[in-house]
């Protein structure tokens, strides 16, 4: 078996090497009981996400790449991955696209790409104090003044932005 046919949630078919099963636990399991020329329906994966996932898979030659550095040591994803292509790939995506892609990788049980997306999200939280985070994500007055004061006294470190010096 050299190629399999994946069907996005919109019904679009894409052919891909069966080696894709190296990266996806979902596909790996399907192929255990697969009939030649059978379509594999990916009901939770949009065509756009499927294209991105396959682009990632082809770039890595269907082999599991090195995982991102954990914990990350910089807010720049490029400093935390060994292949610069991975950083360029995930940096193309906005917040919503990353969330969609994580959802798709959840469905496909595709840990390597999910790790890359989650590390990218972690980069967005890196070295930021609470005021910066709140400003960036438009969070206002969620706690009462009393609770806010208590939280700040319990977590004084949260008030101090760290640098990567």
């Amino acid at each position: 078996m050299s190629e399999i046919t994946l069907v996005s949630k919109e019904g679009t078919k894409i052919q891909i090497s069966s080696q894709f099963s190296n990266l996806s636990g979902f596909i790996h399991n399907i192929l255990q009981d697969y009939q030649q020329n059978e379509d594999i329906s990916l009901a939770s994966v949009s065509f756009i996400n499927l294209q991105m996932i396959l682009e990632y898979a082809v770039h890595h030659n269907f082999q599991v790449p090195q995982p991102p550095r954990c914990p990350i040591t910089s807010p720049n994803i490029a400093d935390n991955v060994s292949d610069p292509w991975d950083a360029e790939f995930v940096n193309r995506l906005n917040e919503d696209q990353i969330i969609d892609l994580v959802t798709a990788t959840n469905f496909l049980d595709m840990k390597s790409l999910m790790d890359l997306c989650l590390a990218k999200i972690a980069c967005m939280f890196k070295y930021k104090d609470i005021e910066t985070l709140r400003k960036e994500y438009g969070i206002t007055e969620e706690f009462t003044a009393e609770i806010e004061e208590k939280l700040k006294s319990d977590f004084p470190w949260a008030m101090e932005a760290e640098s990567n010096d």
Partner: peptide, 19 residues
Amino acid sequence: EIIKYLELKDLASLSITCK
């Protein structure tokens, strides 16, 4: 999984950022 990528001060900040 995201938490695993973060360090102490990041966790402290995140824990009280919002409800």
